[in-house]
Amino acid sequence: MNVAIIGCGGMGHMHARMAANAGLKVVVCGDKFKRKADALAKKFDAAASDDCMEVITRPDVDIVAIATPTPVHTQYVVAAAEAGKHVFCEKPFGRTVHQCKEAIAAVKKAGVRLFVGHVVRYFQEFEAIKAQVDAGKIGRVGFIRTYRGGIMPEGEEMWFRDYDQSGGVTFDCVIHDLDWLRYMFGDVDHVFSQHLQRSTPETMDYSQTTLRMKSGVIANVIGTWAHPSGFRVKTELCGESGMIQYDSAESPIHAMSRGNAGAGPGMIVPSSPVPVSPYQLEWEDFVAWLYEEREPRVTAHDALEAVRIGLAALQSAESGKPVFL
């Protein structure tokens, strides 16, 4: 099957590579900046265009992969569905619940399949945690604390720093943990959140969220785009008969370069030296679904719920009140 990449930034490059690894062919790359489309297309000997709608409707395209800034995700999902293409959409699914619902309706009507890239469900370390919990190693889990982030990403035209577009660290970054917590511990009852979303004198965001799950379980979720460098993920689960801790800082390889000091990042993607990248695993899961082999680990409904929780956190931070889902 042939893939079109829409949005040729950091995640566009990632998904092009992973789709190819999963046995698909990248045939065309679209980006409103032609230079970016060209740069990615060159790597895959694909066509390039700055007209994304034209890219989506090309007859040789079977799957559209969307890696644009969040607010325009669903307009491309809808266009792809209407053109009869299957869709891979980067998280967050959309910027509003309404957008997500429209997109789900469009894929349903068209009879195509939509997968949203909540990749943390495929990360080996998070799967290892799930396996231990499922095996009952720490008994019933009552409390979880998660931590994710580092330096604030830039992105084309600094779109991550425009909180109206990205939703800040809470909506763009912490949504990984919001989805994973719901995956592990079921639906959320209510959310309380605080965040910085500062633009002066330094642009930085930092967020502190507490989720109360319907089961009563409490999760404390910290997200940072306030660090001067780096990227770190920490997770701690406390159960009635034990604990599990994970900290990405305890990685097996620590490399320090003498050159290139002070180079700024685009979008930071954590690298873990594993046999198969979790980004490839999510693509393989999606492709297996397209070949009717199995249901995928993440559904469009899951992605909509993650958006709902993320928006509730933003609303709580604005209002100073808990928000019920």
């Binding site: 009552g142 605080q194 502190q208 404390n220 604990m243």
Partner: peptide, 26 residues
């Protein structure tokens, strides 16, 4: 045995604090 406490200080300094007895015997 677990409290997730959100606080504010003068000038809007935001605080998230975990007060717990969540450390297992092991």
């Amino acid at each position: 045995d677990v409290g997730s406490v959100h606080l504010e200080m003068d000038g809007g300094l935001i605080v998230s604090h975990i007060a717990s007895w969540n450390r297992s015997k092991s």
